[in-house]
Design a binder for these strands. Structure first.
Lengths: 325, 325
DNA sequence: TGTAGCATGACAACCCTTAAAGATGTAGCC
DNA sequence: GGCTACATCTTTAAGGGTTGTCATGCTACA
């Protein structure tokens, strides 16, 4: 490994001088600068970021905890966050919590030990307690953890309302909401709340079916959806709380001989890539992934500077109408 | 931030002793050990991994370069790699190259500067040259870069053969292969080669349609697929080189009034989550993502130890038959 | 009494880089 | 000639932790 010392030896100066050339500090003669530059080039010198992290007490690394990047939504979110982070000069240390509170906690410790500059928590299992002694800039996605941890989320409530109004406008009379994980307290539950609220406002009957969506792609889950459909055969409009669930609903409907959108209309949530690939293409609520990523990094950076950040940032959603309604 | 010094002060010993307790070195009395332990607990001390990385010249961080974790296959692959890495005590620094050679090169530099212990390159743009002076343990997925860079890949050739035989066995007479990115030299091109080879062996006519799949989810790409379908209206069996492409093909067929699998049978590749969610559920070739992740980490770890590793590891694939054929 | 083994401390060097303070040299000015 | 001012580079300490050497004190055993 080439170090400053090697460069200094080749250039015939001390390491300090080389460091000053690198960081443009103090007086450096034109002659010395070019000598150092050429020495760095011949040795293909790369500064050791580990040593710099130790000195500056900051690593320019952000820890990202998600349930799993294999889930389409979190894959897209992680991608957007990494993209925005790299624009701002940060790197991403990735942690997939896999819905496991223990794993999540040990990841938090790991990130602490590795002196990340901040953490984005887009996971859903940890209780609030452990955060009380994580004295690191922290930002959460979709969950209110504590007043001093800024939360960024899409406007799930409004999304739910948009869906209800849209299905009603399309002539649906028997609505069903299929939710993903009712027990966990998180902001995305509001998509169901908004839906129900708008239904009530329109005096439209609406059934709620909440499931325990522990693993995202299980046979069990499809069976559970099937049960919900069989229990409510007259349903003609369905709001699934994610596009993945919507895909499963479409399949289950198809197996039961129901046509989408003629017999049953269906709306998803997230607008991940598969939404437009489904057959029929899925009407869904788009979460502004890129904008949320920008906002998250902006707020986390503020926190890292010690500046105040709003406790709650709700980003606008958009109804994307395709062929399933 | 609490350091060893603070712990030593509380425990009434020197930093040397604390370090010894931490690393189980030399003689430590039961008494001292428990004193140090409790001091660490009260201060919630976490060793500074940055400082340790500097000393040991290893960070236990692995750099992972993928085109994008938002692509279903690479999301699942990244998830499996991170899972296997964390089991072995490694962390993952994530880089999405976005099919951009410049970005990929700058990520490589970044990973070098940050002293990662090794790099897994699952991206597809860089030429071989830059690797010649990356003297870091390197492992590539799906691409042969140089003899001393181990490659891990699924058996794409065999996958292609399996698909051809399956479609023929299902009675297809007019086969079409829709490929993703013919121009880039990578191992996954073999899925097309295997397909064509098996078709020729069975004396079955087979059309090849290679496209430039630059961005994965574009309207353009769908239009391009549509053109291919219109140019070959008699096609009754299609092999799409990925599940995402297959999803688009299914949609394009549906728009043209063709039924799957009655009129046209279709097979994908990868077996990502969406394959089973599509309507109809997609017959596809499963890449053994978990097994490949394990293999990649195993080989990378060997490389990191300086041990030899096979240049080429081809993992078995499996045809998953669902409703699209 | 000598020596071996155990338990700890003190000190320094090291990993690589940075930065404040110090040393040296040169030019300009009164 | 003596002084300031500035340019240029070096010395030294620091960041947090590990490790080797040496010194010290204690107990146990032959």
């Amino acid at each position: 490994m080439t170090t400053l010392k090697d460069v200094a030896k080749i250039a015939g100066v001390t390491v300090t001088t080389v460091s000053r050339v690198l960081n443009n500090r103090g007086y450096i003669s034109h002659d010395t600068r070019s000598k150092v530059m050429s020495a760095m080039k011949t040795l293909d010198y790369q500064p050791n970021e580990v040593a710099r992290s130790l000195i500056f007490q900051r690593s320019r690394i952000i820890g990202l905890i998600v349930p799993s990047v294999s889930h389409p939504f979190f894959g897209e979110l992680a991608n957007a966050i990494e993209y925005e982070a790299s624009k701002r000069g940060y790197k991403i240390l990735l942690a997939n919590s896999r819905h496991d509170a223990d794993k999540e906690n040990s990841y938090l410790d790991m990130l602490k030990r590795n002196k990340v500059d901040g953490i984005i928590l887009a996971s859903r299992t940890v209780e609030t307690k452990p955060f009380l002694n994580v004295n690191l800039p922290l930002l959460s996605f979709d969950r209110e953890l504590s007043p001093d941890i800024p939360m960024v989320s899409a406007d799930n409530t409004e999304g739910g309302r948009l869906v209800a109004r849209h299905l009603i406008a399309r002539g649906c009379k028997n609505l069903l909401y299929i939710g993903g994980s009712g027990s966990v307290r998180q902001y995305s539950n509001n998509r169901g709340n908004g839906f129900i609220e708008a239904c009530e406002q329109a005096r439209m009957p609406c059934t709620v079916y909440e499931t325990e969506e522990v693993s995202f792609n299980s046979q069990q889950y499809e069976a559970s959806i099937g049960k919900a459909l069989d229990a409510h055969p007259k349903v003609d409009g369905i709001f699934a709380s994610s596009d993945v669930i919507a895909a499963q609903v479409i399949r289950m409907l198809s197996i039961r001989g129901k046509r989408v959108p003629q017999d049953v209309k269906i709306v998803g949530f997230d607008d991940v890539q598969i939404a437009s690939l489904l057959n029929p293409a899925l009407t869904t609520v788009r979460q502004p992934v890129e904008a949320m990523a920008i906002q998250m990094l902006e707020l986390l950076e503020r926190k890292m500077k010690g500046a105040p950040a709003p406790a709650k940032t709700i980003m606008p959603v958009e109804l994307i109408i395709r062929d399933s309604t």
